[in-house]
Amino acid sequence: MTKQSDLVLEVKNLKTVFFTNSGLFKAVDDLSFSVRRGETLAIVGESGCGKSVTALSLMRLVPDPPGRIIGGSVSLEGTDLLALDEAEMRAVRGNRISMIFQEPMTSLNPVMRIGDQIVEAVRLHRSIPAREAQTIAVEMLRLVRIPEPARRAREYPHQLSGGMRQRAMIAMALACRPALLLADEPTTALDVTIQAQILALILDLQKELGTGLVLITHDLGVVAQTAQRVIVMYAGRKVEEASVEALFASPMHPYTRGLMASIPAVPAAGIVAPERLNEIPGTVPSLVRLPKGCAFAPRCKLAIKRCEAEYPPLADWGGGHLAACWRAEEVAEVA
């Protein structure tokens, strides 16, 4: 078993809701998970499943109103982030926990030099002379393998390519050596050859610095290549959690199974592409009018009466493989 001190992040029963004109919706409903030092946890799901709101909740960046965290605890290195006031949270954000976003162009300041933006982030948390911070900035740019870092530090975001900008974002996020890095679809806006470069970079740096990483993505390929553990979310809830090997070898939730069968594969040695893709019928339900029982039941081939009446509990099916399904055992047998 892992030592308690290894845990960087422990989230318990997190609940984030949004108050909208069409009613209250639970974007994240009773979510618990933990991340160990140096571990990569992937959160996977489709749009609206609550994966990005989870990240924003951890950063305490949920816009209020309309959103609010109404329950649970988020413990980062033993400190409950939800109990901090805004000034205390500012001291943690970007320092012990930082985040990289999907679109680097909208998250960098367009009228500020790259180097100065990193300097700003560093000096916010450490009282060091500007000169020293500047040296750290250039060092960070070198670390993320930007060629000619000293020259690039004096450039503006628009002078960099998309891949370079994402590298600069990573440099900024890691400048204070955070204990936890949240990456929300960090490579979705990038081309596939650049994506491979950036993912390799994030993993290398994580190994080097021992950072815990929460990687949020919709791409099961990215999950398989990067994560050690995976959480699958559907309609605001965790429906399955397992080690990456166990999840891909024997998914226990019908939604996970459906997702895996619906992605086309590149034909290569050892991979036989399916003749026809598996479809998950229907669409993701509206979070305002969630069914009483399992949210996936209306789209599920295995749904029985009980699924519509009662929400299945998240049960451990052995070896830390959690799944919230009344028929989880049968799902695994079919696999």
């Binding site: 491979a196 390799a200 990215v222 290549q225 891909f248 895996m260 590149v266 290569a268």
Partner: peptide, 22 residues
């Protein structure tokens, strides 16, 4: 390009970019 596509199989890890730069 083909080598850059992340394969949805954790047993076939390979993320080794074959091209550098943009």
């Amino acid at each position: 390009l083909l080598a850059s596509v992340p394969i949805a199989n954790p047993l076939a890890k390979k993320l080794a970019p074959l091209v550098d730069g943009d």
